[in-house]
Nucleic acid binder design. Structure first.
Length: 152
DNA sequence: GCCAACGTTGGC
DNA sequence: GCCAACGTTGGC
């Protein structure tokens, strides 16, 4: 099993929004970055766990935990001409963008990015690196365990 | 709203 | 296939 960190703008999909959805699941739509796509398409497996991060908001940081709940599948919005995520180059026969669905596991104590930066144990976390713009990043088991302890 | 960092695009 | 220009991300 692998661990991940997944960013979402709370104005689009917040952890509280996921709780309200059927089965508490949501397609991880709208990813238009190849590295992030490849993580989902090639590396994620059902049962992997991810830190749910709110970005582009007043208090960026970790708000909850979700699990990877489906196999990888073509992302739906790329085929919808009216969607802001429409991708004319993509076809159902040869989809360009792939994603998984995540399922709500639990809300956690909020841990801000400033707090995460305090710990030398977490200094290599991808999300904390200067200039990081990747919305899906791997988290090591050590980092994961350390963060779980912070939440107790 | 600024801007650093980095990804993408497209002319050559 | 190089690389300048441009666009996007996202913390601050």
């Amino acid at each position: 099993m692998q661990y991940w960190l997944m960013k979402s703008e709370p104005g689009e999909v917040s952890i509280d929004h996921v709780i309200e959805l059927p089965n508490q699941m949501v397609e991880w739509f709208g990813i238009r970055n190849y590295q992030a796509r490849n993580f989902m398409r090639d590396m994620m497996q059902i049962g992997d766990k991810a830190l749910f991060w709110h970005s582009s908001c007043k208090e960026p940081g970790i708000y909850g935990i979700v699990t990877i709940a489906t196999e990888v599948h073509p992302e739906t919005l790329q085929f919808l001409p009216d969607s802001e995520y429409y991708e004319p180059k993509s076809t159902p026969e040869k989809p360009l963008w792939w994603c998984i669905d995540v399922k709500f596991e639990r809300k956690t104590k909020f841990i801000s990015i400033q707090e995460l930066r305090k710990y030398p144990e977490l200094e290599n976390m991808r999300v904390l690196q200067r200039g990081n713009r990747l919305s899906i990043t791997p988290v090591s088991k050590d980092e994961w365990d350390f963060i779980m302890n912070l939440m107790d």
